[in-house]
């Protein structure tokens, strides 16, 4: 399945330096002659592709990479404060919600439990919704800054 001279054949196809023993081996070894056929075809194609090629100048690529590096560094530097602000926002929202609930007088609970009318339900839903939105908003902020 593998011939030990395969690498030598590939190298010889690349640099054109064929020894007589390697040439003789090529006549006897089906694997190596296969290798030589494919390698020569592909290498000719590669040489053709590289001929007359108009590559972007190295200096331009270097400058582009440096600009990218600076942008990445700036993004990394600004990401941390955003993360802290997002996390603090989330904590603040949760604490505020808990505090708000604890401040509701017992009479309000009784009133809501006794007569769950339209006003009571709307008020309760409003409090719950604003709390949820505040928490979700903070998490979105955290996720966005993380990204």
């Amino acid at each position: 399945m593998k011939c030990e001279k395969e690498m030598q054949v590939i190298e010889a196809t690349r640099n054109g330096l064929w020894t007589s023993s390697l040439r003789a081996h090529l006549q006897d070894c089906a694997l190596c002659s296969q290798t030589e056929l494919i390698a020569a075809s592909l290498q000719e194609d590669a040489a053709k592709a590289e001929r007359g090629l108009d590559l972007p100048p190295a200096g331009m690529v270097w400058r582009r990479a440096q600009a990218r590096r600076r942008t990445d560094a700036l993004q990394r530097a600004t990401r941390r404060p955003f993360l802290v602000v997002g996390a603090l926002g989330a904590v603040y929202s949760v604490v505020l919600l808990l505090w708000g609930i604890s401040q509701l007088p017992q009479s309000v609970y009784r009133l809501l439990a006794a007569s769950p009318g339209l006003t009571g339900n709307v008020a309760l839903a409003g409090v719950a919704l604003s709390g949820i939105l505040a928490i979700v908003g903070s998490f979105v902020l955290v996720l966005e800054t993380k990204r």
Partner: peptide, 13 residues
């Protein structure tokens, strides 16, 4: 050409 430049940019960063 674009992919080549992107390759080197990623490599350097």
């Amino acid at each position: 050409n674009d992919l080549l430049q992107e390759t080197y940019c990623r490599f350097l960063t």
